[in-house]
Each structure stands twice: as C-alpha cells, then as structure tokens.
Design a protein around this nucleic acid. Sequence first.
DNA 1: CGCGCGGTTGATAACGGTCAAGACCCGTGG
DNA 2: CCACGGGTCTTGACCGTTATCAACCGCGCG
Lengths: 258, 258
Amino acid sequence: MRTFQLDRPQVFERFRAQSIANSCINCISKSTCLNSNLDIHHREKLTAEYTHKFKVKVGDAIFHNGDPIQSIYNISKGFLKLEFSLSNGQHQVTRFASNGDLVGLDGIADGRHHLDAYALTDGVICSVNYGRLQSLIEKDPIIQKSIERAISNELNRAQEHLFSLGSHSVEEKLAYFILELLQKEGRFKSEHNSLHLPMNRGDLKSYLGITVESLSRALTKLEGANFFRVKNREINDIDFQKLIEFLDITIEESGQAY
Amino acid sequence: MRTFQLDRPQVFERFRAQSIANSCINCISKSTCLNSNLDIHHREKLTAEYTHKFKVKVGDAIFHNGDPIQSIYNISKGFLKLEFSLSNGQHQVTRFASNGDLVGLDGIADGRHHLDAYALTDGVICSVNYGRLQSLIEKDPIIQKSIERAISNELNRAQEHLFSLGSHSVEEKLAYFILELLQKEGRFKSEHNSLHLPMNRGDLKSYLGITVESLSRALTKLEGANFFRVKNREINDIDFQKLIEFLDITIEESGQAY
DNA sequence: CGCGCGGTTGATAACGGTCAAGACCCGTGG
DNA sequence: CCACGGGTCTTGACCGTTATCAACCGCGCG
C-alpha cells in the first residue's frame, strides 16, 4: 500500500521548487517513481540527461492515440485522465493517474500510444525520454525490472476495473471506485476519511460506464445509506467498513504497489 | 495482424510431435511467441534449458491467484480462460488466450499471480521458467523487449475490453467479441467467415459482463438480423462488414501484434 | 429410458437510460 | 456587492433494456 500523503500542499510546494530543477534525488515523487527501488547511485543516472520536468494546465493534452511514443511520463503533481477513443467520437476514460503514476506504457507494444492523456488539473509532469530509457534499461537490469513491474501493475489495475464494470450495479461500481481512490491515497487506516475528487461527473461516469444521472442518483443513494457525505467534489465521512461490507469483499493489509 | 490459421488440425499434429521435444526452432507457435523477432541464434537460447512443454486437459488449472510466479506460459495448442476472482466467490473471465498468447505476465508486478488460469480445451503449453528468463533478459535486450511489448500489448487488449463493457448494449458487446475473435485468428480478409467458440455460454457471459439469457437472446437477435448463423458453438456466415457498420467503427489494415 | 446439464425461450419486474426541467456553482461584469 | 449567465449537477417522470424467475428443449450418458 502506498503511503504518501497529499494533504500538506505548502510542504509540497517547497519540494517542488527543488525538483523542478531536474534532480531525481530530491524529487517528491521518487518513492513511487520508476526508481522506487533504486539506490542513490542508480537514481543519479535518471537525472537531468534523461528526464525533463514541465508544467501542464487543466485540459492540456499530453499525448494522443497514434502518436509515436517519445517519452514515459511520471506525474509529479496533479491528475491526468487516460481515454480510449474511437474516430467516431466514442470514448471512455479508462484510468485516472496521479502523483507517482507512470503513464504512457501502453505505447511500448508497437511504439505508438493507444490512449489519449489529458490533464484534469494543473500539474507537473516528469518525462523520461523513451529512447534513452531503452539504452539505460539495457545497461541496468534494475531499471528494466521497474518498468516491467510498472506495466504489469497497470495491467492488474485494468483487470480490477474490468471486474468492477462487469456485472455490478451502479452503486457497486461507485463503491469500488471510492475504495480504489482511498487505496491509492493510502488512506485505508488513516484518520482521513475524506476525499477530493479530481474529476468532474462527466469523466467519472465515463470511467464507470454509466450516465451522469445514474451517477448522481447513486451518490445520493449511498449518501442516504450513510456510506459518506457528498458535497460537490468533496466526499466526507467515508465509512470504509460499510463500503467493503456492501461489496462483500475483504481487503488485505499489504496491498503492495510496484 | 496475425496470420496463422487454425483450420488444419492434422498438419498441426505433425508439428506438435516435433515441438513437444522442446525445440523452439521448430515450434509451431514461434511466429507469435516471445521469440517472434529473434534470429535463429537467439531462439536457440530459449530452448530446452529454459522451456518445458506439457499437456493440459479441459478444466485443468494452470495457476491461481496468489501463487508465486514460477513461469511465463506460451500456449502452443488449445484455449485458456483467465479469471479475476474474489474470495467471496465472485469472479469474472477477463481474457481468453490461445495459440501463441503469453500468459502469466500479471504476476510480474509483485511476483504473484493475480488471476486464475484454466484450460478450456485439451492443449499444450510451453512454460518458460521465470527466474531463468530474468537472467536471460539481463543478457539479451531483444528478449527483454519482447516481454515488455507482450505486457504492453496485453494492457491494450484490456483497454479495448474495458471500452466494450462500458456503455454498450448486449448486442454491441457481442459484436465486439466476435470481431475480436476474428481478428485474433487473422480472418478479416480471409475466405473463412466462420468461427468455433472455444468457450461455453457461461464463460462468455462472464467475459461480457451479462447474463446467459441475455447472451442467448443477443445471439438469436443478431442472427435474425443476418449478422451470422449460430449453431451451438459454431458461428457461420459472419457478415464482417455489417458487424463493423453496426458498431460504427473502422478497422485498420495493419493491426500489428507484438 | 430417464436423468442431468447446457442452452433457449417466455413472462415479469427492476434497474438504469433518456428526456426535460430545475437547482446550484462560480466567474464575469455592471 | 449583487445580478447575470453558462455550465455543471441534481431531480423527476417515463420508458426500454436487461436481469430475474421459471419452464422447456435437446443432447449425451449412465
């Protein structure tokens, strides 16, 4: 289970000023980045010559389906959505990504991205040039392992999403989503039983494969059953235990990330 | 797009007799295996000391959720289903795998499998010891790339599945599935407009996230609209063009596999 | 022959989608 | 500071699709 915290923005800002200067050593995201299990020597290799930090604003596209894969992206700050889209306009959000998540691995298969990536909020992204990363991988098995684990991890996340979309009611899908977000922010056992949703209802209904109206009704219904309180994008007083009972599932303590 | 054919079983049997003797050089699956883009020298490395061929029977489990990852599996013959399952009995088929598919990559993330794998038919599986594969990867960047591409490919397949489950009617999900199978068997432009479904209705409804009854009705409905003819597990006279018009999609010629 | 299993068909009900209206949020400008 | 306006979100009424429950069919097998 990841344990970083998102609730002290001012501290974040101080680190940001350092990390934007392209050092992996001091980067706030390092505990969840590619180099999470690298020692300090390895981390230095990932620094300036391989990485490039840049800011994004709400709505910015990071890459599109079909684009050749230039880089792998690590999110330092902010939120992205990843969409599967067809030329006829149909599209679906398949993933939300945030602090420490690696994005763009879908392009490894054939050298082209298969998804669209957009910024949901202003943020900072660390890009790692893919060509250079490849040569680095060849020289360093630890980095190679990190990459493989990251993709495999993403695959497993997709499987869980698949499961939650198949044969579940709207309320159940929503409950799975809330738990997923809680887990991502490492808040299972913490005193923080609230969430701020980084996405609007439109993106969330797409992710869940339902309509906005159903989503809205599901929110009020679960609120009425005292699973949580909803106020716009704020979810408060989340009753973690009730949610997992509702879904009839058990959560292991050691939800180990990559 | 993959171009191997599945419709001459007696020829397959002759090859099988050779490949069971553990040579990647003569293996019938090699064009779609890990070593698809290896030259003959590299292929030799993958032979006997790394791989082990074995037969499976209908219903056999290959691995379970939680098992430590011993091997990566390449399917030489037959069909597998991969299931996401919870301890409360809920489960969903998330993938069907056949000739040339790599299975078990979900376990790379944390060294344990996250899915259950079962044989849908009798078959032959080629296992590659994961520990040895890892050391091989370190020495040989081409094999490492093959692995990464295979996982990334699987990730993209999962995204498409996700898309087809979200916001689509039962008939649409079924149509997507038929096209997916056709594509897998490389029959888009071939004279073969028929399919044999390797799975029963129960597994298929699980994959599509619907009920058996809805599946049955969707089959008869699409049959009534002359998309194809259904006879038990045989799908005949498939009207490829009508299917893609129904889904309002376009298919590129070059559906390149890994 | 008759049982059991997988699959289909039918009747009914509920869940979720659709359409329409209204409430709320928030930025802009008077 | 408040009024306005546009977009987002919620609520309500209605209807269609799909799940549910139940019966039945066909086939393989003891």
